[in-house]
């Protein structure tokens, strides 16, 4: 079942169109990566999902019904441009924002104490927020986002500014929330983390959706019959074997082994390559080289832009 369905949404501003007839659906329980270059329209889409702005055309379905004001209490939103009241005490501030999301004061306080404990910022409860380090402020913002146990989380560039330790902490937390049943939309430029934690993605470019689907399927779709072979250095294969059928893409080695990226021409199979190699060398490993999300992102955006530029 889809928790969110974006149906043919269009949003125009005075001089440009931010979203042009975009449709996509987010499966209940998925970690959904919302990808796209800067200015593609991601933030506009996220704001529409939060009911901060409204589409000119199209509609949003939330749990099967049109998105309405009451649904906002089930949504947790961590904006890319995030801030806090500098002078307010950290605890008071979190309490205030949690209450605005509809939590009762006593419940919010109880939950906050636990979270502050878990994130090791308990000592900062009564300190003005401006005295907290950037990392601590980000922890605080994240706590505020998830405190009311939203079933649907929207995280816009959640990792920006975090050090590797806190990035891991955050990743673990996101995975944990996902296991507990939350659906998460993750907008990020960090493709490594997309591969690590996302199940599905949508790629938006120039206000249009150009790609959507399960990451495995997408990688299968964009694979180009390239394989990675690692052979022991004592018997290297003859360079003569590379040609039109087995095209050498790249080659690199260390003192024990050498790795080849080999593209197999259409109509030929990987098994042929293995047979050929096995006759000459000792194969250490053999794997299909799937394109990284990074490569797919760049390739798709460039192709799209070139096409539209040509028009």
């Amino acid at each position: 079942m889809n928790i969110v369905e974006v149906q043919e949404v269009t949003k125009r501003y005075s001089k440009h169109t931010a979203l042009d007839n975009v449709s996509l659906s987010v499966r209940q329980g998925a970690v959904f990566g919302l990808l796209g270059p800067n200015g593609a329209g991601k933030t506009t889409l996220i704001r529409i999902l939060n009911r901060i702005t409204f589409p000119d055309q199209g509609r949003i379905l939330f749990q099967g019904h049109p998105l309405q004001a009451e649904d906002v209490s089930q949504i947790g939103y961590l904006p890319e441009e995030r801030g806090l009241y500098k002078k307010m005490k950290a605890g008071e501030q979190a309490l205030y924002l949690a209450q605005l999301k509809g939590m009762s004061a006593s419940d919010a306080k109880k939950q906050l104490k636990l979270k502050f404990e878990q994130y090791q910022i308990s000592d900062w409860w009564n300190r003005p927020t401006e005295e907290l380090s950037k990392g601590m402020q980000q922890k605080l913002q994240f706590i505020i986002t998830i405190l009311h146990k939203p079933s649907f989380l929207i995280l816009d560039e959640p990792f920006s500014g975090f050090d590797p330790i806190n990035t891991n902490l955050l990743k673990d937390e996101i995975m944990q929330l996902s296991r507990e049943g939350a659906t998460i939309i993750l907008s990020t430029h960090n493709m490594t983390s997309v591969e690590e934690i996302c199940d599905e993605i949508a790629l938006i470019n120039k206000s249009q959706k150009i790609l959507e689907g399960n990451i495995y399927d997408i990688k299968q779709q964009f694979k180009n019959n390239t394989f990675l072979v690692e052979v022991a250095n004592d018997n290297l294969p003859d360079d003569q074997m590379f040609g039109d059928v087995f095209q050498l893409v790249s080659q690199k080695g260390n003192e024990h082994t050498t790795s080849y990226a080999i593209r197999i021409a259409d109509g030929h199979e990987a098994n042929e390559l293995i047979q050929l190699l096995a006759q000459q060398s000792h194969i250490v490993s053999f794997a299909e080289k799937l394109p990284s999300m990074n490569e797919i992102f760049i390739q798709q955006v460039e192709t799209f832009n070139n096409q539209h530029h040509a028009e």
Partner: peptide, 17 residues
Amino acid sequence: LEEKSNRIVEVLISSVK
């Protein structure tokens, strides 16, 4: 101005009108 330049306004607006 504080809420806007602080960028907290986006969090607030996602909770209240």
